[in-house]
Simulated scan of single mutants.
Amino acid sequence: MPIKKLGSAFALLLFFAGLAGAVPAGFNIQGRLTDMNGINRDGTYQMTFSIFDAATGGIALWEQNFSLSVQNGNFQVILQGPDKNNKPLEDTVKNLEAAYVEIMVSGEAPMVPRQPLLRSPFASSDKIPAGTILNYASITPPEGWLLCNGQSIFKDDYPELFAVIGCTFGCPIAEPNKFNLPDLRGEFVRGFDAGRGVDNYRVFGSTQADIFKSHTHPDNTFQEIANTWRGGGGVSPGNGTGRSALIANTGIIGGVETRPRNVALTYIIKR
C-alpha cells in the first residue's frame, strides 16, 4: 500500500514489502522522492532509516544510513541485518508488539508520520526451527545459520541444534562435548525412505555412493567364417559358410561421474 510522508523539503511515496521467508528477514522499501511541489528528484541522497517501537517519541532501536541513487524520483532500499551500531534488525524487532520506521532525507527533519512495519517477516524467520536446511545464494551464511560443511561445534554453544540432530552426522570420540554438522558440500540430497521401499535399508542421515542401476547393452555382431574340416592331411576349406558371434563393447564415453544438470549453491542449517 503506498504511503505518503511529508518533510520540510521533500515528500515520499513509499511502498513496503516484507521479505517473507528471507534469511535473515528484512523489509524491501520502494519509494518516490519529490520536492514539495511534486517534482521528481534525481541524484544521490543520504537517507536515514530508524526503527521505533512507538508511533511517536521514544528512542530509535535500529538505525542505518544509506546513500541511495534516485532516478526520476524512484529509489529502493532493503532494511536488513546489523545497523550502524551493529544491532541486528531481526533480533531488534522480532519481540516487539509494533514497529515503526522513521525516515530522514539529507539531514532534514524526520518525515511524518512514522509508518508501521509488518511483523510477519520477522515472525516467520523467528519460527524457522533449528535444524532446518536451505539453499543459500552466498558462500557466507547469514546470521543465525551455519554452513553444512561437516565441522565439529560445541554442544553448549548450539543446544537447540544439538537437540534436533544430536550425533546423526557424527560426534568426535576425542571431543565428547562436540557434535558434527552435516557435510553437504558437493552432494545431492535424497528424501529419507522411511519404509516406503524405494531406497530400502537406509539409515537417516547416512551417505550413499554413486552407482549405476544393473543393466545390459546387447550387441548382435556376427562374423562370417568359412566351414572347414580337419583330416590327416591337415585343414582344408569346406563347402559352406557359418556365423560366429564376436565379443564387443560400446566403447568408453563420459566423465568422472554421473550427474544431472545442476547449479552450485550453499547449504545452510538453522542453528
Rank of each mutant, 00 (worst) to 15 (best):
S138N: 15
T258S: 08
L12V: 06
E108T: 13
L19W: 01
G57V: 00
P159R: 14
V77A: 15
N249T: 10
S138F: 05
M36W: 00
L246V: 01
Q115Y: 04
C167T: 14
D219A: 10
C171M: 09
A98R: 08
G38R: 01
F16L: 06
F204S: 13
C167E: 15
A20T: 07
F204T: 08
S244I: 09
C171V: 03
N40G: 11
S120I: 01
S120C: 00
K94H: 01
F75I: 11
W62I: 11
G26M: 10
D193K: 13
G191E: 06
K178N: 14
G131P: 01
A123M: 02
K84H: 07
G255E: 03
G26C: 10
F192I: 07
L147C: 01
P121W: 00
A99M: 07
W62R: 09
T221K: 10
F169Y: 11
G43R: 06
C148P: 02
E175P: 02
V235G: 07
V93G: 05
V77R: 12
N249M: 04
I128L: 14
P172E: 12
E102H: 07
G197T: 05
I173C: 03
I153G: 07
G81V: 02
V164N: 06
L161Q: 05
A60Y: 02
P260Y: 03
M104T: 11
A54L: 11
F154V: 10
W62A: 11
F154W: 04
W229Q: 12
E90Y: 07
A109V: 05
G238L: 04
K155T: 13
G57E: 04
G57M: 01
F179I: 13
G38H: 02
V105Y: 01
C171S: 10
R202E: 07
L89E: 06
P121K: 01
K127Q: 15
P88G: 03
G231E: 05
S69V: 13
L33D: 08
L134Y: 03
N220Q: 08
V256E: 07
G231V: 05
L12P: 00
V101R: 02
N249K: 02
G232K: 08
Y100W: 11
R196I: 04
M36T: 14
M47V: 00
I29S: 09
F66Y: 14
